[in-house]
């Protein structure tokens, strides 16, 4: 087994087991911490696939911004494990059955289908910011601008929703 294979399997098991721990841990703060472990292992996968800039952005955005937001909300709401009520057993069974069937369907689909290869293999420096920036600002300029409009709308919405309601009339 080569080093990259070992890295792939290690990162995959880390991602899946910490993903399971996110779902099964009773304390929401522990879930957030396990989710950060999952995100770091996914960033490791991006490094393995030569998407270096994407890995860096993934760590900055997810571990640095989104999970901190989650932690702040959990801290402000003061959630702990006592507030979690027991899930009904038929809901548990239904969740296991439906998620396993989704997994089964997708795995059988993947193993049956043949994936067409591209013409040229990807260059090693294609994932660097120089090349990604060229693609983003040349081919995807309109979606980029629309994304900024989406961010503005999300920011206005978040500020408006989380504002304390002033008493009307």
């Amino acid at each position: 087994m080569s080093l990259t294979e070992i890295a792939f399997y290690f990162l995959s098991f880390l991602a899946i087991f910490s993903g399971l721990a996110v779902i099964l841990s009773r304390n929401p703060v522990h879930s957030v911490l396990y989710l950060i472990v999952t995100f770091f292992s996914i960033a490791g996968h991006y490094f393995l696939m030569n998407a270096q800039f994407l890995a860096a952005v993934h760590i900055i955005v997810y571990a640095g911004a989104i999970m901190v937001l989650f932690l702040y909300v959990i801290m402000m709401l003061n959630l702990n494990e006592e507030q979690e009520e027991k899930t009904k057993s038929w809901v548990k069974i239904a969740a296991v059955v439906s998620s396993c069937s989704i997994m089964l369907i997708l795995v059988s689909l993947i193993s049956k289908s043949t994936i067409v290869m591209g013409k040229a293999p990807m260059a090693d420096d294609a994932g660097l910011v120089q090349n990604l920036g060229k693609v983003l600002y040349k081919d995807y300029l309109l979606p980029f601008e629309l994304a900024s409009v989406l961010f503005l709308a999300a920011m206005v919405g978040a500020v408006y929703l989380s504002k304390k309601e002033t008493s009307k009339s």
């Binding site: 013409k119 293999p121 990807m122 994932g127 990604l132 081919d139």
Partner: peptide, 9 residues
Amino acid sequence: VHGDTSGQV
């Protein structure tokens, strides 16, 4: 696989 940067974008 496809050697295309669009997926990363």
